[in-house]
């Protein structure tokens, strides 16, 4: 196993940031930790990268204990922090050189390893990092995290605040890095990025809700999801659907509504009821639950 986390718990005063978290990641996997702001993603990553000690539990990275062998881990992993990764008043080249030197290597020694990514920004080598666009900063930060050929790459919300085009490019780069045999652990608040991972861990308020292949998540208790689309405004029908049955729950899903039915709901009757309404260009039918549907169901099941 490339990363193991066993019963990790961490509190800050009254705030229970992580509650008994356990999971493991095999070598070469692309694992996504998915959850909203404040879920505990950064706290968990800071424990794994040996910047913070857990209150309870154990963790290993690249086979080494995060507490006892933190020096070894720091050599073997690359970390791209959410907030700060680059020195804005150093040039592109100077940033990369700095990171290489800190890890006791040189750009020349490992150039072939970062070339695919670094070549995009190489034409701007003399520019100050603070003057790069968001997408270019990201590429430089990733180059810096990789310059010492780490075995495990840990990235904290690398795509937050990045536009759709750069986001796609970034995920393509992560896939390439994974193909080099590096284990990639990435966190994100965007549920739609789950599908790009081999496996995901869903985290909310310090609780790990599930760990799974994103295509294998199944709603519990026989819950089904139906999608309700209209050329009108879905919001106008939201309350009406919620009022149908105590076991029917409905939430906006972009310009549609997703209707969740409990085990006791007669889907045939629900179907007839909705079809009988006067809805402009109604689109109605059972839907394949998305990661977001699953996340929402889990959230509602969790005790506060």
């Amino acid at each position: 196993m490339s990363v193991t986390v066993e019963h990790i718990t961490k509190s800050f005063g009254d705030v229970r940031a992580l509650r008994d978290i356990s999971f493991s990641i095999p070598e070469g996997e692309l694992f996504g930790l998915i959850g909203p702001d404040g879920a505990g993603k950064t706290t968990l990553f800071r424990i794994l990268v040996t910047l913070l000690l857990a209150d309870e539990g154990q963790a290993t990275v690249a086979g080494y204990d995060v507490k006892k062998a933190y020096r070894k881990i720091r050599e073997l992993m690359g970390y791209m922090a959410g907030r700060f990764s680059l020195y804005h008043d150093l040039s592109v080249r100077e940033n990369l050189e700095f990171y290489a030197t800190v890890f006791g290597t040189t750009i020349r020694e490992n150039y072939d390893f970062v070339k695919d990514i670094y070549s995009h920004i190489e034409p701007y080598e003399d520019r100050l990092a603070g003057r790069l666009s968001g997408g270019m900063k990201q590429k430089l930060a990733l180059s810096c995290a990789l310059i010492h050929r780490p075995k495990v790459l840990i990235l904290d919300e690398p795509t937050t605040g990045v536009d759709a085009v750069s986001r796609k490019e970034f995920w393509d780069m992560l896939k390439k890095i994974q193909r080099e045999g590096i284990t990639v652990l990435v966190s994100t608040p965007y549920m739609d990025e789950a599908a790009l991972c081999d496996r995901v861990g869903l985290i909310q308020k310090g609780n790990l809700l599930a760990v799974s292949d994103p295509s294998e998540l199944e709603l519990s208790n026989g819950t089904k999801v139906f999608r309700f689309g209209t050329s009108g405004r879905p919001y106008d029908y939201l309350q009406r659907i919620r009022n149908l049955d105590a076991q029917v729950d409905a939430w906006l899903f972009g310009d549609e509504i997703h209707v969740f039915t409990g085990a006791g709901v007669d889907c045939g009757e629900l179907d007839r009821t909705v079809q009988s309404w006067d809805v402009p260009d109604l689109e109605w039918g059972e839907a394949t639950p998305s990661v977001e549907d699953y996340f929402m169901q889990k959230m509602r099941e969790e005790p506060e």
């Binding site: 959850g35 909203p36 702001d37 879920a39 937050t160 605040g161 608040p189 549920m191 909310q204 405004r233 919001y235 939201l238 939430w251 906006l252 977001e292 996340f295 929402m296 959230m299 509602r300």
Partner: peptide, 16 residues
């Protein structure tokens, strides 16, 4: 950005 999926939907309901 950044909030959980349920909070986010409650926000959109507020907007509508």
């Amino acid at each position: 950005g950044g909030v959980d999926p349920i909070t986010r939907r409650q926000f959109w309901e507020l907007i509508y």
